[in-house]
Amino acid sequence: MTLVSSTPMLQEARKSGYGIVAFNVHSFDMLYSVAEAAAEIDAPVIIQTTVGTVQNLGPDSIVKTANAASEKYDIPMALHLDHCTDLDVIIQCIRAGYTSVMIDASMHPFEENISLTNQVINITKYIDVNVEAELGKVGGVEDNIVVSNKDAEKAVPSECKEFIERTGVPTLAPAIGTAHGIYSGDPDIDFKRIEEIASLVDEPLVLHGGSAIPEEDVKQCITLGMAKMNVSTELKNAYSEAIKDHFSQTPDSLDPRKYLSKAKEVAKKLATEKMTLVGCAGKAQEIKTQAYPNQYKIDSLRV
């Protein structure tokens, strides 16, 4: 199965009350770790890359690798560009074959955010590419985007409704108290705000800053309408710590196959836990038939 737009899978997830995890990967090995974990538990998955990773690995290479993984493991997989402020990079990734993009104009005033989001919506109007936008400001650090705690602000429910009505954006990431990175204390998640936003809009909502949120908080967010949860720092740290541990224990063991295989297993374990937590384990085949019936019929005829 080739890469798919994340719009149908997220719509199905919200309708059915579970979530899809979107993992930020920084290497092709990490990409395959996540894909293999998803295949082993029959879960749909979203692979994400930051602008920095796009610049490092190249959009064409990322798309080819993600497509190969999707076809190898035969699971519904989308490829998403995370937190992009540059329209040229968005166009570049869409041309390469990304099936989902995020225009992050949340640092701009409301009207300008709408205008910039509509520019991307107009580009994707006739192609099968999901668009994600953000309202409010999620704190923390994501690639080269830094939002301090004092500058972080939560999304206004009525503005979320108006924003979707005026843009038609299919997925929205409202700031609700989470932050990018690992929390120094418990996150201040505004569950009432999530519930109010979800009561006003039918579109899937996106939970940014999903690393290290307590499990019960994640489950409540999903129950209230969050259909996509982003995980970046926790996966990156687990992968890297496994490599550090390898050299701490066996400093003379320089075979990349040995230390990368350890990192892969740690990444797979974490990815499996996150996908199981949001309830998408065992949903891949259901997603195929419910969200992508035409593509699934075509793929099933391949010899």
Score class of each variant (00 low, 15 high):
residue 2 T to P: 12
residue 4 V to P: 00
residue 7 T to K: 12
residue 11 Q to R: 14
residue 13 A to V: 03
residue 13 A to M: 04
residue 14 R to N: 08
residue 14 R to A: 08
residue 15 K to D: 03
residue 18 Y to L: 05
residue 27 S to G: 09
residue 32 Y to Q: 14
residue 43 A to S: 15
residue 45 V to W: 01
residue 47 I to N: 04
residue 49 T to F: 13
residue 58 G to V: 11
residue 68 A to W: 04
residue 68 A to K: 13
residue 70 S to D: 04
residue 76 P to H: 08
residue 82 D to N: 13
residue 83 H to I: 09
residue 84 C to D: 08
residue 85 T to L: 10
residue 95 R to Y: 07
residue 100 S to A: 13
residue 100 S to M: 07
residue 101 V to G: 05
residue 104 D to N: 06
residue 106 S to R: 05
residue 106 S to A: 13
residue 110 F to P: 07
residue 113 N to G: 08
residue 118 N to M: 09
residue 122 N to P: 00
residue 125 K to L: 07
residue 126 Y to Q: 13
residue 129 V to C: 12
residue 138 V to Y: 08
residue 139 G to E: 04
residue 140 G to S: 09
residue 140 G to R: 05
residue 143 D to A: 01
residue 146 V to E: 13
residue 151 D to H: 11
residue 153 E to F: 07
residue 155 A to C: 09
residue 158 S to H: 14
residue 162 E to Y: 06
residue 165 E to H: 09
residue 175 A to W: 00
residue 176 I to V: 15
residue 179 A to G: 01
residue 180 H to S: 10
residue 181 G to E: 07
residue 184 S to C: 00
residue 185 G to S: 15
residue 187 P to Q: 03
residue 188 D to Q: 14
residue 190 D to L: 03
residue 195 E to D: 12
residue 203 E to T: 14
residue 206 V to Q: 02
residue 209 G to P: 03
residue 210 G to N: 09
residue 211 S to P: 10
residue 211 S to M: 02
residue 220 Q to M: 15
residue 225 G to E: 09
residue 228 K to C: 04
residue 232 S to G: 15
residue 235 L to V: 01
residue 236 K to L: 01
residue 240 S to M: 10
residue 245 D to K: 14
residue 269 K to F: 13
residue 269 K to M: 09
residue 270 L to P: 02
residue 274 K to E: 05
residue 279 G to Q: 08
residue 279 G to P: 06
residue 279 G to R: 09
residue 284 A to V: 00
residue 285 Q to T: 14
residue 286 E to L: 06
residue 289 T to E: 14
residue 290 Q to R: 13
residue 303 V to S: 12
